[in-house]
Design a protein around this nucleic acid. Structure first.
Length: 107
DNA sequence: CTATTGACGGCGC
DNA sequence: CGCGCCGCCAATA
């Protein structure tokens, strides 16, 4: 408990993502000091189903909704993003860099 | 207990 | 410029 693993930190960072913003797995991992553990971030998102983590705001480094397949529906992730004002085209976020929220930079 | 996979990313060839 | 491999932590088989 007193030793939160990267896993737990991912949840905290993900929950810090502001409305209408998105980030990448690597950005979170890098903020945690393990840019090479980006895959672990995705794994955490998978477990985030039981947390209050907006996993739909987390995409890969190119802005592609790689994990949309893990959501309840097939386009649920895209719907949520568009609902927040983020334009998504072919599973890819438009102006991803514009909506990109870097924890290591913003925090 | 060991091996493989997993929503990725960076570097090498 | 294109394809592939390795690295990280945790969970599952």
């Amino acid at each position: 408990m007193e030793e939160p693993s990267f896993f737990d930190k991912v949840y905290e960072v993900a929950k810090m993502i502001p409305y209408g913003r998105v980030t990448s797995y690597g950005a979170i991992a890098k903020y945690l000091g393990a840019a090479r553990s980006a895959r672990m971030v995705g794994w955490a998102m998978n477990n985030s189903h039981n947390k209050d983590v907006p996993a739909h705001r987390v995409v890969n480094r190119v802005g592609v909704l790689t994990g949309k397949h893990h959501f309840d529906g097939t386009n649920l992730m895209q719907q949520l993003l568009e609902n927040e004002g983020v334009q998504v085209k072919d599973n890819q976020i438009i102006d991803f860099q514009k909506y990109f929220w870097d924890p290591a930079k913003e925090l």
